[in-house]
Structures are given as C-alpha cells and as structure tokens.
C-alpha cells in the first residue's frame, strides 16, 4: 500500500513539474497565448481546465474499458474526442443550472476547452501508460495543476511585459514566445527529479 501511494504522488509531481503540459509537452498552447493577457482570464481558464481535465480523465478511463471489452480500440481517437466535446457541453449545462456564480466565472472558458489538445492528450497518455484508476486521477490532477501553474505564472509575466517598452519587432507574440522560452528553461531544472 505504501509503495502504491508513493507511486501516485510520484506520478502527480512528475505530471506537474517534469512533464509540464504547457512547457515540455506543448499541449494546450492556444489558450496559453490566447487568455494569458490578464490575470483574471488566466485564473478562470485554469479553474475550468482543472475541472474538465479531472472529469474527462476519469470518464475516458472507464470508456477505454468498454472499448477494450468490445475490441474496438482503434476507434479511440474518434470516441474520445466526441465524448470530451459532449462532456464539456454537459458540464456547461449542469453548472449553469446548479451554480450560476461558478457559471459566470467559468462559462466563457468552457467552449474553449473542448478544442484544447491538453484534454485529449491527457486521456491518451492515461490510456497509453496503462494507468489504474487511482493513477489516472493523480495524473489528471497533477497535469491540470501543472497547466494552471504555468498559465498563471506566464500571465503574471505578460502583464509586466505589457508596460515595458520593447523593440518594435518583438512586440506582442514574439515577446510572449521569448518569455515562454525563459519560463520553459526554468522548468527544465526539474528534469530527472522524478523517474516514473
């Protein structure tokens, strides 16, 4: 039992720091550059991603059991993406009915998350590594926390960047990428910290 719990936390921290979704796996970059212009949107998007990633991770894990029992694993891509799209819609409707305050905070980010490759990427990573249910949950939580951490860090850097005077060629996107380069460099320091 102890060894198992240790492995869960190893997976959690590896997903969060070593294989950070944004900075080392390059998953979910579109919202990374899209919503990171202000702190509020970055926090809203992060909350949405944490919520959807954990739910989608668990749902696709059970779904994969079904696919395996029917011997149709080759349909993984098609089934996963459709289920994730439907799931986000359901979550949106559910939150709208039950918790209007949460909906007004997350509402506009949920549709963005459907086409976010981080969600499908996470589901595929869970399946490819043959994770158990608990490992899937820890991997999902770790990945989404790592995503949020990088997104919020990056947006706080970008807010500073906006008030600085930059060379004309670097204004906007190029500067954002260079900032991401520096942030990614600092995350490289975690490489080799945990071996799973």
């Amino acid at each position: 039992m102890g060894a198992e719990v240790a492995k869960w936390f190893a997976i959690l921290f590896a997903a969060m720091l070593v294989n950070n979704f944004l900075l080392s796996r390059f998953l979910g970059l579109c919202p990374f550059f899209g919503v990171s212009k202000s702190m509020d949107t970055a926090v809203g998007m992060s909350m949405g991603v944490i919520f959807v990633m954990v739910v989608a991770g668990i749902v696709t894990w059970f779904l994969n059991l079904l696919l395996i029992s029917w011997h149709i694993e080759f349909l993984q891509i098609l089934v996963f993406i459709l289920v994730i799209a439907a799931l986000v819609q359901i979550i949106e409707i559910f939150i709208k009915k039950t918790n209007p305050a949460l909906y007004s905070a997350l509402g506009i980010y949920l549709p963005l998350i459907t086409t976010n490759c981080a969600i499908l990427g996470l589901s595929l990573i869970n399946v490819q590594n043959n994770y158990t249910l608990m490992e899937t949950i820890f991997n999902s939580v770790g990945s989404s926390l790592g995503y949020s951490m990088a997104l919020i860090l990056f947006s706080s850097l970008r807010v500073k960047l906006d008030v600085e005077e930059l060379p004309a060629a670097f204004e906007g996107m190029p500067a954002a990428f260079i900032t991401a380069f520096i942030l990614s460099m600092s995350f490289m320091a975690f490489t080799g910290m945990i071996k799973v």
Binding site: L23, R25, M173, A175, F177, A180, F181
Partner: peptide, 10 residues
C-alpha cells in the same frame, strides 16, 4: 522544449 519557443519567437 525551450529551444522550440526560442526559435519560433525569433
């Protein structure tokens, strides 16, 4: 990974 960000940024 950092190299990718640097090259596309430049």
């Amino acid at each position: 990974p950092p190299g990718a960000f640097l090259v596309i940024g430049l």
